[in-house]
Design a protein around this nucleic acid. Structure first.
Lengths: 290, 290
DNA sequence: ACAATTATGAAATATTTATCACAGGCCGCT
DNA sequence: AGCGGCCTGTGATAAATATTTCATAATTGT
């Protein structure tokens, strides 16, 4: 935390000349296995570099740290900065806005959410989920709650273009039991449930499960209780500087799924889209130009 | 070094279900800033995860370690293994997926969109838009089209919590002229229009303008023709590897706006949210725990 | 080659950090 | 509503880790 924009490794390298023999020996040993070696106990580091314990203490002081723990803290900071990836580094996003502006703070948080979500997602599970959703033999139910029904609707809207045989269910409505009547073994439920998890959604999931349906769940990092029933759970980070949570990352996942499903049967999808275009042309709903 | 070929991060993720509430909270906190957080002192980790010190000790034992130092040693080993391995996996986002996987391609595109959008946005205009939307003396109309009506609804839903005196209009419906009857000078229209720009939306905008309303427009980089009428235009990049466009960036902007508006009158918003909570409690719609 | 200076490591001390034992509290069950 | 079990955090204890001191060895300059 002494100097920004310069790794500790760089600093050590630069100061190599000012070091004494034993210190140099130590420095090289640190760089050998950087940064892991510096994160262990001082004693272990001294032993592995084959120098005495005080040598280590003296060297880190020469580097400007108050003591070894201070040095370690700096190493850890550097490590987390790296882990965040080059994009998430604290640079200003909205170039014209001050760095404390809500746009920058919010964007940083969302990028962080995305990074975190993607780091933990299981691509095999994702592909399986897409395959289930793409399977037109199975009836597809898309379920959303109070907040998430917009997400559900967004997915539904696109799936409508791609395939037939699907239903949009709103768990907060009291009509959903009727839909379940038609649910058959092997049908697929895509369920959205993020925190303030909803009792209705859980009940619906239980009953769907009981009827032999397959469950794909979109949820947050704390995971809706539905996840215990779900065949596939896709988890998103949703923290932002706001009184509410962010669905931006979830949208990203949903859109990725749409894209993947459309690819799985592109020939068919293309035809359906074209047909849709023609219908729209007749309704003159959209502008032709500009 | 308990098990090869499986990162500690994976193990933690897998055991998430066997953990208790506090342990899960801790585990998520570790994954949040992995692996740096686990390499500091136990006390610091406990504090940052907001759990007690013994909880940390108990969790690492559940993971099969003799104690916290043992756990740290394993983390360091993993770290050095990574550092030695082939350098940098060419910036894949979903680490477990191949770089050509849809998840990575899509994520890269969205990050790119965000970056581009934020680079071109005018924070002053954004702030003005927020101020308009926050002004409770003006009636707020939120307008969406065929695709964007989910976005409009999302904004509407949150604004409903923050303030009274607002209406959700769907331009594709044929009922919107009725709403316009009530529109008065100084009212605010938030309009969503992205490509396949809609004739109805343009007509609506023209008439709103004619009645002396202020227009805030969310659109894409090619800009809906509404932008010639709008007081403030917020432009988003929406290109992704898909047959459709992405609203992820637009969602980010909308959420930023929600956050900002809520801040502009936080005292009032807080009260309204609390009231809402109480009503929900009575309906028992949400689960209290887990 | 000798003295002055500086580097080094062993050992003692001080500090931090981890583990353990216990009691209060919460939840689910009857 | 009352009871049992399990989770959870507080405080005490033990262990480890880091810092300092000091004697010795190495190095440099004269």
């Amino acid at each position: 935390m002494t100097d920004a924009n310069q790794t500790i490794s760089d600093r050590i390298h630069k100061e190599l000349d000012t070091f004494t023999r034993a210190e140099r020996q130590l420095a090289l040993s640190i760089l050998e296995n950087y940064p892991a070696s510096g994160l262990g106990p001082l004693t272990a580091l001294a032993r592995s570099a084959d120098v005495s314990v005080p040598t280590v203490a003296r060297m880190v002081q020469k580097l400007g740290y108050k003591g070894y723990p201070d040095f370690q803290a700096d190493l850890r900071d550097e490590l987390s900065a790296i882990a965040k990836g080059p994009i998430a580094k604290h640079e200003t996003w909205a170039g014209a806005a001050p760095s404390g502006h809500i746009l920058n703070r919010f964007t940083e948080a969302v990028i962080d959410n995305i990074r975190n979500t993607m780091a933990h997602i299981d691509p095999v599970a994702f592909d399986e989920a897409c395959a289930l959703v793409a399977d037109q033999k199975r009836h597809l139910y898309i379920v959303g709650g109070r907040i998430t029904h917009t997400l559900a609707e967004y997915l539904f809207m696109h799936m409508q273009v791609i395939r037939p045989n699907l239903t949009h269910v709103q768990s907060t409505s009291n009509t959903w039991p009727h839909y379940l009547l038609n649910a058959a073994e092997g049908d697929v439920f895509v369920i959205f449930d993020v925190r303030r998890y909803e009792n209705n959604t859980l009940k619906l999931a239980e009953m769907a499960r009981a009827r032999g349906a397959r469950l794909v769940l979109f949820t947050d990092q704390w995971r809706s209780p539905v996840h215990r029933l779900a065949d596939i759970t896709l988890t998103c980070r949703i923290i932002v500087p706001s009184a509410w949570d962010s669905v931006a990352t979830t949208v990203l996942l949903v859109e990725s799924m749409i894209s993947q499903v459309q690819n799985l049967d592109w020939d068919n999808t293309k035809d359906r889209m074209q047909e849709l275009e023609e219908i729209f042309d007749k309704t003159r709903l959209f502008r032709k130009f500009t």
